[in-house]
Design a binder for these strands. Structure first.
Length: 148
DNA sequence: CCCTGATTCGC
DNA sequence: GCGAATCAGG
């Protein structure tokens, strides 16, 4: 995008009229990122942002490396996994077992796609299978190397 | 999913 | 300086 004086005037005009960045981009045949970026550099008055950036002093979790130009991989661009699709099924009903005879010992890191429950055969009147009941029910006297 | 604006940083 | 990628929210 060559930001001629005319283009900048047009951007300023649209911006002053209160159009959204994407709308301005559509009208000017450029991306909304181009509009936002230029508006920012022109110090046009900021629009109310829908997002709440971390307060001053708070450190970000180390932004991972980004590529200005993404590697185009043959016709099948990698898509960001939609967060709503990334929910492991186990999280939907975290404390409900398939049946009273199903072990509900948690396996893996909660919140990760790998997280699930054991689902082995639970002992009678216990929520865990034999293996996990042995871990779960330890006499206080005999505890040695629990408490990860 | 659609949308919004803000920020980062390779180019 | 530019703007895609990403973030973060509705």
């Amino acid at each position: 995008m060559e930001w001629t004086a005319e283009a900048i005037d047009q951007l300023r005009a649209f911006w002053a009229e209160g159009h959204s960045t994407a709308e301005i981009g559509r009208r000017m045949g450029i991306s909304k990122n181009a509009v936002v970026g230029k508006a920012h550099r022109l110090n046009l008055d900021a629009r109310p942002s829908p997002i709440r950036r971390e307060a001053e002093g708070g450190e970000r979790p180390a932004a991972q490396p980004r590529r200005a130009t993404p590697p185009a991989r043959d016709g099948a661009p990698l898509r960001r996994l939609d967060q709503s699709l990334a929910q492991p099924a186990a999280v939907v009903r975290p404390f409900q077992r398939v049946s009273a005879r199903t072990c509900c010992w948690p396996l893996g890191e909660p919140g990760t796609p790998e997280f699930r429950f054991c689902s082995g055969d639970a002992l009678t009147s216990k929520p865990y299978c034999q293996e996990h009941a042995a871990v779960a029910y330890v006499k206080a006297r005999d505890r040695r190397e629990d408490a990860a």
